[in-house]
Design a protein around this nucleic acid. Sequence first.
DNA 1: GATGTTTATTAAAATAAGTTAATATTTGTT
DNA 2: AACAAATATTAACTTATTTTAATAAACATC
Lengths: 101, 101
Amino acid sequence: MNTASKLLGISELEQTASILKSVAHPIRLSILQLLVHEGRMSVNSICEILQSEQSLTSHHLSNMKLKGVLESKREGQKVYYSLKMEKMRNLLECIESCMGQ
Amino acid sequence: MNTASKLLGISELEQTASILKSVAHPIRLSILQLLVHEGRMSVNSICEILQSEQSLTSHHLSNMKLKGVLESKREGQKVYYSLKMEKMRNLLECIESCMGQ
DNA sequence: GATGTTTATTAAAATAAGTTAATATTTGTT
DNA sequence: AACAAATATTAACTTATTTTAATAAACATC
């Protein structure tokens, strides 16, 4: 296998980089940790636990939903977010263990 | 273990997010892949393989050097870059295998 | 010391991301 | 229908990142 064949194509690179951007922000990282470890959660609970503003949190949630990382389901007044992209679970675990080193 | 204790503190979150930002860009991602798989490499070789502009490549390289992800060594006219942050090797392997799924 | 190569630096321009505040929407309750 | 609670959306603003082009610096060779 030569060098070139190991490299991803542009669109794969861009897609990967774009997904990684989801994790590369303190608020989004902690939202992801929460959802991976605790499962689905309402926007309000997320705000309370993370002590983050409603609007800002909502923006970050939509951001990740748009990228297919999260999904949401309304139940009455509340909207519950949860992980949609399953590979994010592995990725996050890797990140946690790599960063611990 | 309760929810809060699993969450990282702000400074850890910021540090992690900041390192993840290194990977969260197509050019930097491919530079990292190259260096992880091929070892040290001169700026010129990197540019050629990635078909990226010298100046832009150099900017991304300094960016990652500044964050402690890469290191560089001049040998004659050439400057060789290589991985400095060892945990980046694991992280990148995780990313590659997670993204393949 | 002039010239060519390789890399870094600077500054400007272009683009993107993050934050805030205010308001809108949806649903539930009285 | 009026009101409250939960969330989303919009628009303005701020800040950061990315890209480009031009130039400088470091080294090698002649």
